[in-house]
Amino acid sequence: MPHISITECPRDAMQGIRHFIATEVKAAYIQLLLNVGFDRLDFGSFVSPKAVPQMKDTAEVLKQLDRSVSATQLLAIVANVRGAEEAVSYADVDVVGFPFSVSETFQLRNTNHTIAQALEIVKEIVATCHVNGKVPLIYLSMGFGNPYGDPWSPAIVADYVDRLVAMGVRDFALADTVGTSTPEGIARLYQYIGGTFPGISLGLHLHSTPAEGRDKLIAALDAGCTRFDAALRGFGGCPMADDQLTGNIATETLLQLLYERGIETGLKEEAWAEALAYSNEVF
């Protein structure tokens, strides 16, 4: 039975909340999630505080974490080379994620760059990561289509993956930024990209309404996906997208489905319950 890798996403869950969450509260919450034993933790981002005010204290949060309790990798999101250079300067950051959009409109909205410019940024981020022993992770944002009318097809997604692989990227996540994917579309695209590029690590970062999340996870599991992003209680969404903050797939939904299928996660149940209880302080 394959190991299911789970990335818990408190950064994605918190970034769209308008009131500022105290640094101490963020750090305490992320520490509790570290204790659970997820494979990765999307804990913060090194981006402009004007663009995402909630994440302006990522460096301070990082300094308050105790990494000794867990082997969980810490993932930081960046939007440009400067952010990547800051992220790799911290020994405790293991993975640097960049949202590369297959939608020109959304790439401009999200990072203020065209796709052509974003490809050049990725090239520099990958080089920076490799020199500093970090893993570059590329989110294929708007991977399942977009509301802006930009061209989209599985072949377009595959073309960008091909270019990114040539730059040295091996870690990818197909991202449904606005929750428009269907179970059938998820299975089809995942198998197409995974089959076309067997040498990559391919995960899913899905935004969904609660009612649709379970069916999407079932489709992904049946398609062979073993890497999932999720957020406790299904909070989150992208504040740069026209999606009314359609939330992440709830971690509880994923864990329940894995339990029903007899798939062990290796997560610590008591630590999970503690993090779940503390989430009331955060949200």
Rank of each mutant, 00 (worst) to 15 (best):
4 I>N: 03
5 S>G: 00
6 I>R: 03
8 E>S: 07
13 A>K: 04
14 M>D: 08
22 A>S: 13
24 E>Y: 03
26 K>T: 03
27 A>M: 05
29 Y>V: 03
31 Q>W: 02
35 N>Q: 15
41 L>E: 03
43 F>V: 02
48 S>P: 01
51 A>T: 15
53 P>L: 01
56 K>C: 11
59 A>S: 10
63 K>S: 13
66 D>N: 15
68 S>P: 01
76 A>M: 02
92 D>K: 04
95 V>H: 02
96 V>A: 04
103 S>T: 13
106 F>C: 13
108 L>S: 13
110 N>R: 09
116 A>T: 03
116 A>P: 03
119 L>A: 06
120 E>S: 13
121 I>P: 03
125 I>C: 05
128 T>F: 05
131 V>T: 14
133 G>L: 09
133 G>Q: 09
135 V>K: 07
136 P>H: 01
138 I>D: 04
138 I>E: 02
141 S>T: 14
145 G>F: 06
146 N>D: 11
146 N>L: 00
146 N>G: 10
149 G>H: 07
155 A>N: 09
161 V>Y: 00
162 D>W: 00
168 G>V: 15
172 F>L: 02
173 A>K: 12
173 A>D: 12
174 L>C: 12
174 L>W: 11
181 S>Y: 04
191 Q>N: 10
193 I>P: 08
194 G>Q: 04
195 G>R: 05
198 P>K: 00
201 S>K: 07
211 A>Y: 12
212 E>V: 05
219 A>R: 11
222 D>I: 13
223 A>N: 11
224 G>N: 06
226 T>R: 08
226 T>A: 03
231 A>V: 05
237 G>M: 12
238 C>F: 06
239 P>D: 14
240 M>E: 11
242 D>G: 15
242 D>H: 10
258 L>E: 03
258 L>M: 12
262 G>S: 05
263 I>A: 07
265 T>K: 03
267 L>C: 08
271 A>L: 02
274 E>G: 00
280 N>R: 15
